[in-house]
Design a protein around this nucleic acid. Structure first.
Lengths: 188, 188
DNA sequence: TCTTTTTTGGAACAATCAGTCAAGAAACGG
DNA sequence: CCGTTTCTTGACTGATTGTTCCAAAAAAGA
């Protein structure tokens, strides 16, 4: 039998995410990756293909994990509006770390179909879940009914991006909290 | 006497902005720059120093031009709310092109003091102007008074960032317009 | 025409880049 | 124990990076 792998693949991927989210794809060298991931260079290429494939895998994993976290918040409270609030509050609290999704969109725009597809499939699930919760909240009279749930979901996620950009540009926790509150207030 | 410069420095800078806004700093090579700017490599180094200085100059120029455009909108209409609307509508209409400011913040965060300073001084002027207009609108009864003008200005610019990110990630003009409208509705 | 300065292009620079090779080390079945 | 297979390690490669050097051509005023 063959030798067994010494490192955990998903753990190494998480470490790669940590580098990519902070420095982007072009700003990250393979040196930075191997040292951060604590694996040999050859192991990197054997396990993940090349730098681009590793980046795509990192974005994919980050996207699914972020989606999972958002969905968990959206399910957290029985009252729909409170769940939406929980989602926004988590975003505010975790805005200190750079978002690999936004970073990836900023860096590549629509120029890489594989990335575009990755983002859109993640976005779709998330917006659908938020939309359903928004409709519940509308039915409960907690959210205004003059706007469609689709438009409201778009608005919330645009504000999530706005909050994260604000954080990356140096906004204080107090400012971020305010942004989250106004966004919530806006949908009422 | 000596030979006079053949190319226009600010025009060359504008061409550099066009490359940087689309590909970021790390994603742009000097080859791309000299071919896009239509000047020789030596002229580039003589005139702008090096790639990093050129990038900083590009960000600075972009920032001042963008600020100028925003301020023009904020002064456009006599009624404050209508000026704010004009500003948001311009953002929606021009969201098709990548924003070098956001790109730069995403790529470098707070890691480059020179850039941070550039952004903050531009931001400050803009937010101050918007804040004043918001207070006017509050006095006129067009904007809610339950929130401070500072918080409202922060909110508007976070939404501008959100709209631009949405555009970069592939949102349709219709979606962008909706985002602008909801943001405006939110401050009422 | 001469001088001065810019522009231009190519050649060269060291550094760094992504990616590969080859040899040794470790695990497991025999 | 052995042998096979895979993993790990570090040196290596060729290409590209940003930057500089050099020399020739070009332009503008003295």
């Amino acid at each position: 039998m063959a030798r067994t792998k010494e490192f955990d693949k998903t753990q190494a991927l998480d470490l790669a995410i940590g580098v990519f989210r902070e420095h982007g794809f072009e700003g990250t060298s393979t040196e930075m990756l191997v040292s951060a991931m604590k694996i040999g260079r050859q192991s990197l290429y054997d396990t993940f293909g090349d730098k681009w494939k590793l980046y795509c895998l990192a974005v994919e994993r980050y996207s699914t994990e972020e989606t999972k976290a958002h969905l968990a918040m959206l399910r957290k409270e029985p009252r729909a509006l409170e769940s939406i609030r929980a989602m926004m509050e988590r975003v505010v609290e975790t805005a200190g770390q750079a978002c690999l999704g936004i970073n990836s969109i900023c860096e590549f725009g629509q120029s890489r179909p594989e990335l575009t597809h990755l983002h859109q499939s993640g976005d779709w699930r998330l917006k659908e879940a938020a939309r359903k919760r928004l409709e519940e909240a509308q039915a409960a009279g907690d959210v205004c009914t003059t706007l469609s749930s689709v438009a409201l979901a778009d608005f919330l996620f645009a504000n999530i991006a706005g909050i994260r950009i604000a954080a990356r540009s140096g906004a204080s926790p107090k400012q971020l909290k305010s942004l989250g509150q106004i966004a919530l207030r806006a949908i009422k």
